[in-house]
Amino acid sequence: MTTRTVRRWRQGGWIVLLLAPALIILVGFVTLPLLAALRYAFYAFDGLAPAGFVGLANFQTILFEAPYAAWTMRALGHNAIVFVCLMLFQNGLAYLLAFALLKTLPGHRLHQVIVFLPVVLSAVIVGFLWKLMLHPLFGVINAALGLIGIAPHPWLGDENTALGAIILTNAWHWLGFPALIFLAGMQRIGAETLEAARLDGAGDWVLLRRIIWPLVAPATTIVFTLTFIGSFNWFELPYVMAGLTGSPGGTTDVLGLYAYRLAFGSATAGLQDFGRGSAMAVLMFVFLAVVSAVALKFLRRREMEI
C-alpha cells in the first residue's frame, strides 16, 4: 500500500466514524420505525399481534367506514382550523412584532428576549400552566375577567371555545419563533432601501406592505412550511390540555391524537390496533410530505416573482 492509499483509507475511516453515530440514531429511531409503521399499516391486528396481511383494508376503514371516517374528517378539519388560525393570528402578529423590534425602540433588546422566552419552555409546561390559568373555578383568567364584570366561563370545557383556547396558548408559546425569523429577514434588507422608501414618503403601513413583505418572502416560506407541519403534527398541547380524546366531545381532536388513540387505545376506553394506527400515521406522513413539497415549490417560485 502506498502512503497515499493509506492516507485516503484513514480519511475515509474518520468520515465513517464521525457519521456513524448520527446515522445509527437516524436509522434506528426514524427510518426503521417509519418502515415498521408502513408495514403494519397493511396488517390486521388481533389483540397485540399481527394477524395477517389485509392490503388496503385499514386505509379503507379509517377513510370510508362509519364512525371512523367521520372521526378522521373531524380531526383533519380541526388541524386545518389550527393551521389557518396560527397563520393569521400567530404569524400575523409575529410579523408586526418583528417590525416593531426592527425599529430598535428603547428597550428593544429586553423585548426581543421577552418575546422569545416562551419558545424555550416545553409544551407540557406551557399546557399545564395555561390549563390552570383557564380553570373554570380557580383560574386567574376568569378571576381577571370577573373584575370587568364578565361571568366565569369553562374555556376548555365549552365545545365552542376549547379549540380556540388551545390555539391561543399555542400562539403565546410559539409567537417568538416566527417573529425572530421575520426579524432576521427584515434585518437583511439594507437600511438604505428602507431609508429611501421613507424619503419618498412611505409610512409604516406602506413600508410593511409594499417594501418589506416582498423582501422577506424567503422568511415567509420558512414560516409557512414550519407552521403547516407543526399544525398537522399537533399533539403535545392538545394532549396536555384536552386529553387523549380531544375533550370536550372530540371538539379538540386532531390527527395526532386520533392516530395515537387508534394505535395504542386508552387505558379507560379504547383498544389497541396498530394496523389502523399505522395506516393513519402513514396517511399523515404522505399528506404532510406531498403538501409541503408542493407548497415549497410554489412559495419558492413566488420568492422569485416578487
Binding site: L134, H135, P136, L137, F138, P152, H153, P154, W155, L156, G157, D158, P248
Partner: peptide
Amino acid sequence: LPAGFTGVDYPT
C-alpha cells in the same frame, strides 16, 4: 354539579 362543570376535570 359545580359551576362550569363542562370544564371541571377529574383532579378538580
